[in-house]
Simulated assay, not measured.
Amino acid sequence: MSGLRILLIDEDPERAALLDETLRAQGYELVARLPPDELSAKRVNEIGPDIILVDMGSPSRDTIESMRQINEEQPRPVVMFVDQSDDSMVAEAVQAGVSAYIIDGLNVKRVKPILDVAIARFREFQALRDELKKTKATLAERKLIERAKGLLMRERGLNESEAYAALRRLAMDRQQRLADVAEALLAFADVLKNK
């Protein structure tokens, strides 16, 4: 996992310098160091890190909200080291997409294993998120196809297999996906209905 590009968010310049030195010694590339108030999705996009490491005394709601926005726009592993916290802040951080939330501050000896675990958890979560997105899209496409079949059955007096065959034939003739043809057919039917 060495060679990763890390964005360090730290409010303490001395602590950040020590962490910078530790990260470089372990083979990581520190691409930028920002104070928490400069953290934003736009800055993360400009910097393009592989992972975000946050080291602060106590997380602020603004920092957590920035993490949430980053996770929505350009997800990446986030490791947060804090000196003190409470249960509600931990829950908010996890909901915002923080991959690892470590209380009692940063111990330089633990950095590498924590980063490795956070990256692995992030990848696993992203795979689940991608699978869910794919499943939702497939279900939405099936619903469109079913609605289009129902329309053809009602308007043309076809049975279910005839309606499906008609949709498939139209999709092949137009060299389009079945779901796209179904969507166009339903949109056209809506236009005719509203005239």
Results as ranks from 00 to 15, higher is better:
Met1Thr: 11
Met1Ser: 12
Gly3Tyr: 11
Gly3Trp: 06
Leu4Trp: 15
Ile6Cys: 01
Ile6Glu: 08
Leu8Lys: 03
Ile9Tyr: 09
Ile9Gln: 01
Asp10Gln: 10
Glu11Ala: 12
Glu14Gln: 15
Ala17Leu: 14
Ala17Trp: 13
Tyr28Arg: 10
Tyr28Gly: 09
Tyr28Glu: 14
Glu29Trp: 12
Leu30Ser: 10
Ala32Trp: 09
Ala32Met: 10
Arg33Thr: 14
Pro35Thr: 10
Pro35Asn: 08
Pro36Met: 14
Asp37Phe: 12
Leu39Lys: 08
Ser40Lys: 03
Ser40Arg: 02
Ala41His: 02
Arg43Trp: 10
Val44Thr: 04
Val44Ile: 08
Glu46Pro: 00
Gly48Glu: 14
Asp50Lys: 11
Asp50Thr: 07
Ile51Trp: 13
Val54Arg: 05
Val54Cys: 13
Asp55Tyr: 06
Met56Pro: 03
Gly57Phe: 10
Gly57Cys: 03
Pro59Tyr: 11
Asp62Glu: 05
Thr63Phe: 04
Glu65Ile: 15
Met67Pro: 11
Arg68Phe: 11
Gln69Asp: 13
Ile70Arg: 05
Ile70Lys: 04
Asn71Ser: 05
Glu73Leu: 12
Arg76Gly: 01
Pro77Ile: 06
Val78Cys: 08
Met80Ala: 02
Met80Ile: 03
Val82Asn: 03
Gln84Cys: 14
Gln84Glu: 15
Asp86Val: 01
Ser88Leu: 11
Ser88Phe: 14
Ser88Gly: 07
Met89Ser: 05
Ala91Met: 04
Ala91Leu: 05
Gln95Gly: 06
Gln95Ile: 04
Gly97Leu: 04
Ser99Asn: 01
Ala100Trp: 06
Leu106Val: 06
Leu106Trp: 05
Asn107Gly: 09
Val108Thr: 10
Lys109Gly: 11
Lys109Glu: 09
Lys109Pro: 06
Arg110Ala: 13
Arg110Trp: 11
Pro113Tyr: 07
Asp116Asn: 12
Ala118His: 05
Arg121Pro: 00
Phe122Ser: 06
Ala127Glu: 10
Leu128Gln: 11
Asp130Gly: 05
Asp130Trp: 09
Glu131Arg: 11
Leu132Gln: 10
Leu132Glu: 12
Lys133Tyr: 13
Lys133Phe: 12
Lys134Cys: 13
Thr135Leu: 04
Thr135Phe: 07
Ala137His: 06
Ala137Phe: 04
Thr138Asp: 05
Thr138Glu: 07
Leu139Gln: 07
Ala140Phe: 02
Ala140Trp: 01
Glu141Asp: 12
Ile145Leu: 09
Ile145Pro: 02
Glu146Lys: 12
Lys149Pro: 01
Lys149Ala: 03
Gly150Ile: 13
Met153Leu: 07
Arg156Ser: 15
Gly157Trp: 14
Asn159Arg: 06
Glu160Tyr: 14
Ser161Met: 05
Ala163Arg: 01
Tyr164Asp: 03
Ala165Trp: 14
Ala165His: 12
Ala166Leu: 12
Ala166Gly: 06
Ala166Phe: 09
Arg168His: 07
Leu170Tyr: 09
Leu170Ile: 07
Ala171Glu: 05
Ala171Phe: 02
Gln175Asn: 03
Leu178Arg: 00
Asp180Glu: 07
Val181Pro: 00
Ala182His: 05
Glu183Tyr: 01
Ala184Thr: 00
Ala184Pro: 00
Leu185Glu: 06
Ala187Gly: 00
Ala189Met: 00
Val191Asp: 00
Leu192Asp: 00
Asn194Tyr: 09
